[in-house]
Each structure stands twice: as structure tokens, then as C-alpha cells.
Lab assay of single mutants.
Amino acid sequence: GYDPNALYCICRQPHNNRFMICCDRCEEWFHGDCVGISEARGRLLERNGEDYICPNCTI
């Protein structure tokens, strides 16, 4: 089920109804503003069928 207190992202904070994006490599969720991806950019990636790779996986 959905846990509203689950911690995500590099900031280890809950979802808090903020835009989030999922890394296509590790499948962890990240707040867009923490990883520099706007909601519009996230939608563009999705539309173009491009993967989002998080900072942890791009090292």
C-alpha cells in the first residue's frame, strides 16, 4: 500500500505532493526539484520515451 511517511530521494523526505520522477535504473523516486528536473521536463522525457537516470546512477 501507499505509505505517506515513506522516505524518498536524496533528501530522504516524504512525497509531500511534490512532483517526483522515478530513476529507470535503480527505480528509486526523486523529488524533481531536488534533482533539477522540472515537471515539464519530466513529462517531455516520458513523451519521448527517454529514461531518467538519477544522480546516484550517473556517477
Rank of each mutant, 00 (worst) to 15 (best):
I53W: 10
I59G: 04
P14N: 10
R41E: 13
A40M: 10
C9K: 00
Y52M: 02
L45S: 11
H31L: 01
P14C: 08
A6K: 02
G36M: 10
D33L: 08
D51T: 10
R18K: 10
C26T: 01
F30V: 03
C57K: 00
R12P: 02
N17F: 05
C26V: 00
R25P: 08
C9V: 02
V35D: 03
I59H: 06
R47F: 05
C54G: 00
G32Y: 02
G49Q: 06
R41G: 11
S38L: 07
E50D: 10
E50H: 10
D33N: 04
R18L: 13
C11L: 00
R25C: 05
F30E: 00
D3Y: 10
S38M: 13
Y8A: 10
R43L: 11
A6R: 02
I10A: 07
C57L: 01
N17Q: 14
E50V: 09
I53F: 07
R18F: 04
N16R: 09
V35G: 03
C34G: 01
N56K: 02
C54S: 01
E46F: 05
N16S: 06
Y52G: 03
N5Y: 01
C26D: 01
C9Y: 01
G1F: 12
L44Y: 09
C54E: 01
G36W: 02
L45R: 10
N17D: 06
H15L: 12
E28F: 09
I10L: 07
R41A: 12
R41Q: 05
I59W: 02
R47N: 08
S38W: 07
I59S: 10
V35S: 03
G49I: 09
M20P: 02
E27F: 06
E46V: 12
Y2F: 15
C22L: 10
N56Q: 06
D24K: 15
E50S: 05
V35K: 03
P55M: 07
P55R: 11
C9F: 01
E50R: 04
C26K: 00
C57G: 00
R12F: 05
N17P: 05
G36I: 06
C57P: 00
I37G: 06
G32I: 14
T58H: 12
L44V: 08
C22P: 11
E39Y: 04
L45E: 12
G36A: 06
H31P: 00
P55Q: 13
R47H: 08
Y52R: 04
L44T: 08
N56P: 06
Y8K: 13
P55W: 03
Y8E: 11
E39F: 09
C54W: 00
P55K: 15
Y8G: 08
C23Q: 01
C11I: 01
D3W: 05
C34Q: 01
H15G: 11
D51Y: 14
I37F: 07
Q13N: 08
E27V: 05
N5E: 05
E50I: 06
I53G: 06
S38A: 08
G36K: 13
D33A: 06
C54Y: 00
I37D: 02
Q13K: 08
V35Q: 05
G42P: 06
I10R: 11
R18T: 10
E27C: 04
H15A: 07
S38Y: 05
L7I: 13
T58C: 15
E27T: 10
D51G: 13
L7K: 10
N5H: 02
R43D: 03
Y2G: 14
A6T: 08
V35L: 09
F30W: 03
G42A: 14
H15I: 09
D33W: 04
L44Q: 12
G32S: 09
P55L: 10
R41L: 07
G32Q: 08
R47M: 06
F19N: 03
R25V: 12
T58R: 15
H31S: 01
N17G: 11
C54M: 00
R43M: 11
C22W: 13
R25Y: 14
D3E: 11
C57H: 05
R18S: 13
N5L: 03
I53Q: 09
C34K: 01
N5I: 04
N56C: 10
I37L: 08
C26L: 00
G32M: 08
F30N: 10
R18W: 05
G32L: 11
E28T: 12
E27M: 07
C23F: 00
V35M: 09
C22M: 13
F19P: 13
G49V: 05
W29R: 14
H31D: 02
I59N: 15
C11P: 00
I59R: 08
G42E: 15
C22T: 15
F19I: 09
E46G: 07
N17E: 06
E28K: 12
E39P: 04
G42F: 09
I21G: 02
P55S: 12
V35F: 04
G36R: 08
I10P: 09
D3H: 13
N56A: 09
R25M: 09
P4L: 11
V35P: 03
D24E: 11
I21S: 03
R18I: 04
A40I: 13
